[in-house]
Nucleic acid binder design. Structure first.
Lengths: 330, 330
DNA sequence: ATGAAAGCGCTAACAG
DNA sequence: CTGTTAGCGCTTTCAT
C-alpha cells in the first residue's frame, strides 16, 4: 500500500475515489506518491465491497455472420459502446460461436465480472436467454427472444410493422404479384418480417417466398429462384438491403427493368442502398437509437437493483418504429 | 454461504475446485445444494486470493477498419479465441476507436480484470504499447510496434520478406517496370511491405508507388492512378488481396490482359484471391498459426510470472515465415 | 479531516 | 478427510 509515501491507508482510498473531505495538501501528496509508485487500485478487491465493477458485457452469438460482415451490427455496436463510454462504463465483448463457448461465457457472466449484459442472440433457439433468465444479472436483449411471456427486457425493431409498411407501399403502387426474400428463418427478426409480409399478402402462394441468408450473393440467388418459379412477379420485398442489392443485380442481369417491371423494397437502410442502381427504396430503422435505448434500459436495471428489489414491474421493453425511405427502386 | 445445506465452508470450496481429497458422499451432497441454491462463486473474491481470473483481453484499436470488414483479422481472431478456449481462458474483447477510450481501457487492463492481453495496435503511432509497457501485465502484440528495441513480445508476419518474395518472382518473370500498391503508410505492416519491395527494386521511381487503404475500391483507385502515371508498367505488387482484387478489376476494365500485359501479385492469401479472374498469385501467411503463437507466448508469460521473475530473458518474439502461392495472375 | 478496525467472499495453510 | 484461522486489497463505519 502507498502508506509509506504519505499519511495512511483509508485516506489514499478517499483521495482516489475523489471524496471531498480531504485536505488539499494531503490529497496532493498522495496523488504524487501514487504517480511515482505507479499504483493502481485492484478492481477485484474494490468490487468485492462496492458490488459493482463499472463494466458490462456485450454478448454476441454467431459472430461469424454478424460481427464481420454486417455493417448493420457494426453501427449498432458502435452506438452502444459510445453510450456506455459516456457513463464511464467499460464495454467488454464476449463472442460465442461454438457450443463449447456457452458454459464458459455463462460462468463469466455469473462470476460477477460485469454489472450487466447486452445480449444479441438472434437465433430463436439460442440457449443463452434461458440460461441468463434466473441468474439475477441485469440483461437487455437486442431483438426479441422466443419467450415473449417472460419478463426479460428487450429492444427490438418493429420488424413486422416495417415489413407491412414496405408491402403496403408495393400494393399502393398497383403491384399484384408481390414476392419476398426472407432472412434465415431460424432468426426471429426474419420470421417477423415474413409475418408482416403475410399480413398484407395473406393469400400469397408459397412459390412467391424464398429464403435468403442476409448476404448479397444469397439475395441474388433467391431472386433467381423466385424468377424461375414465378416469371410474372412484379414486385419483391427483400428482408435486408444487402440481399436487395444482390436481387437488384440478378434482376438487371436478366434484363428486367426496376422499378418498371419489378419493384424492389429493401430493409435496414444501410449505405449500400444509396449506391445501387436504381437507388433502393427501403425500410429505415434507427440503429443508433436502438443502441442507446438498450444501454439506457440496462443502466436503469443496474441502478434499480441496488435501491429496492421489490418493485418488479412488467418488462419495460421497447419496440422502435420503422419508416419507409422512398428512392427509385419502388 | 452454502454451509446451511451441507457441512461447511472450505469443503464447499474444495468441491467446487475439484480437489480430490473429499469424500464422494459429501461432495455429492454439496453439489446438490449448490445446484438447488443456484450458488455461483464470486470470481472477484476468488481472484483476490488466487491472483488470476482465467480471462485475457483482446485489445483492438481502430476497429472500424479492422473488425468489420477484414476477413483477415476475422480469421486471426477466431484462431486466437479457439486457442484460448482450449486452455479454459475466457477471451474478452476490448474495442478502442475514440481517443477517449484509451484511459478507460488502460484502467481496465491495469485493474486486474484479466491475466494478460493480446494487443492489435497497428497504427505505428498508437499510444497503447507505451502505456502497457510498464504496467506489468503480460502482453503480446500482434504485429510489430514502433519500438523494436524494447522488450515487448510480439508475433508478426515477415512482411518485408514476403514482399521480397513477391517482387523477386515478378523480376524472375522478366518484368522490368514493377509498380506497387501499398497499404496505409501509418501502419507498420504497410511500411514493411513497401520496404521489401524497395529491397528488390531499389531504383524504382516514386511514380511506381501508390498508397491504398486495404479496401477493394481503394485498390482499383490506386491501380488507376498508377496506370495514368506509368502506362508502360508491366507488373504490380499489391500489399493485400482485397486491394489486388480491385486492381485486377481496374486492369480488366481498361482492357489490359493479366498476366500477359500486367502481372499481379497480392498479399495475405485470403479466399477472395481464388475467386478473382484470373486467380491471384499471392503471398501466403498462416494466420491461424500466428493466432496460436500469440496465445502460446501470452500463456507462457502468464505462467512464468508466478514462478520466478528473475529470468528476464530477451523478448522471445516470433516472426512467421511467408510463402508464395502461384496461381494465374503472375 | 484522518486513522483504526471490520469485513466483502473466497482460498490456503494448518490443525485435527 | 474436514473444520479453523488468516488474510487477498480494498471501502467503510466509527471513533477521534
Amino acid at each position: 500500500m502507498a502508506i509509506r509515501s504519505g499519511v495512511s491507508k483509508s485516506t489514499v482510498s478517499r483521495v482516489i475515489n475523489g471524496e471531498p473531505r480531504v485536505r488539499a495538501a494531503v490529497a496532493e501528496r498522495v496523488r504524487r506518491a501514487v504517480g511515482e509508485l505507479g499504483y493502481v487500485p485492484h478492481q477485484a478487491a474494490r468490487s468485492l465491497v462496492t458490488r459493482h465493477n463499472d463494466a458490462v458485457a456485450i454478448v454476441v452469438t454467431e459472430p461469424q455472420k454478424r460481427l464481420y460482415s454486417d455493417a448493420y451490427f457494426d453501427c449498432q455496436l458502435r452506438a452502444i459502446r459510445k453510450a456506455l463510454a459516456q457513463q464511464g462504463v467499460q464495454p467488454v465483448v464476449l463472442l460465442v460461436d461454438e457450443p463449447t463457448d456457452y458454459p464458459r461465457v455463462v460462468k463469466f457472466l455469473s462470476g460477477g465480472h460485469v454489472d450487466g449484459a447486452l445480449v444479441f442472440a438472434l437465433q430463436s433457439d439460442d440457449p443463452l436467454p434461458a440460461a441468463l433468465e434466473h441468474m439475477g444479472l441485469p440483461v437487455v436483449f437486442g431483438g426479441r427472444t422466443d419467450h415473449p411471456e417472460d419478463r426479460s427486457v428487450f429492444v427490438d425493431a418493429d420488424n413486422r410493422g416495417g415489413a407491412r409498411l414496405a408491402v403496403r407501399h408495393l400494393v399502393s403502387l398497383g403491384r399484384r404479384r408481390i414476392a419476398t426474400i426472407t432472412g434465415p428463418l431460424d432468426q426471429t427478426a426474419s420470421v417477423a418480417r415474413l409475418d408482416g409480409y403475410r399480413d398484407v399478402v395473406p393469400a400469397g402462394p408459397a412459390s412467391l417466398i424464398a429464403e435468403g441468408d442476409f448476404t448479397q450473393p444469397g439475395g441474388a440467388q433467391a431472386m433467381a429462384a423466385l424468377l424461375d418459379r414465378c416469371p410474372d412477379l412484379d414486385a419483391v420485398f427483400v428482408a435486408s438491403d444487402l440481399m436487395a442489392a444482390g436481387a437488384l443485380g440478378e434482376l438487371t442481369a436478366r434484363g428486367l427493368r426496376v422499378p418498371e417491371e419489378v419493384a424492389v423494397v429493401g430493409f435496414d437502410d444501410l449505405p449500400v442502398g444509396e449506391s445501387t442502381r436504381p437507388r433502393l427504396t427501403t425500410v429505415h430503422q434507427d440503429i443508433e437509437a436502438m443502441g442507446r435505448e438498450m444501454t439506457r434500459l440496462l443502466m436503469k436495471q443496474i441502478h434499480a437493483e441496488g435501491d429496492h428489489d421489490g418493485g418488479d414491474r412488467p418488462a419495460p421493453s421497447v419496440i422502435t418504429p420503422m419508416r419507409l425511405v422512398l428512392r427509385e427502386s419502388a
